[in-house]
């Protein structure tokens, strides 16, 4: 029974197993970190999402109100009774949805927030 080679063999096997365990440990550590980072994202995500919601709400309402105001004012001056009001109101609605489309597709400003 040659001990030498068996020992070497057995040692190599144990080393390989150890390396595998280490790898698995490092892998699960990284997954854990990713999951935690993702959890952080949702915390910050709430603030990000709510600020997006506030912006969408006020831009939608403001665009339509401004459209209606302009239409109503032009009607007053030009005496074209309801027609301009209806036209500008429709344009205000279009402006509202156009703003929201731009907002939803390109989250914010030039660079767009990195994480979303």
């Amino acid at each position: 029974m040659q001990d030498g080679p068996d020992d070497a063999e057995e040692l190599k096997a144990r080393l390989a197993k150890l390396r595998g365990d280490l790898q698995a440990q490092r892998e699960s550590g990284r997954k854990e970190a990713d999951r935690k980072a993702e959890a952080d994202l949702t915390d910050k995500g709430l603030g990000q999402a709510m600020s997006l919601g506030f912006r969408v709400l006020s831009e939608f309402v403001a665009a339509i109100v401004v459209g209606a105001l302009i239409g109503w004012q032009l009607d007053e001056w030009l005496g074209t009774s309801p027609f301009l009001l209806i036209l500008l109101l429709g344009l205000g609605v279009a402006a509202g949805f156009w703003n929201i489309y731009r907002l939803a597709v390109l989250p914010s400003g030039r660079g767009g927030s990195k994480e979303s």
Binding site: T42, L46, L52, G53, V56, L57, A104, P107
Partner: peptide
Amino acid sequence: DGQFGRAFIGAALAEGLGIFAFL
């Protein structure tokens, strides 16, 4: 997570129509 923002956009639009009723 990706859709979290879009849920708020939808909610904001629904709320916007509610604000018109309030107006």
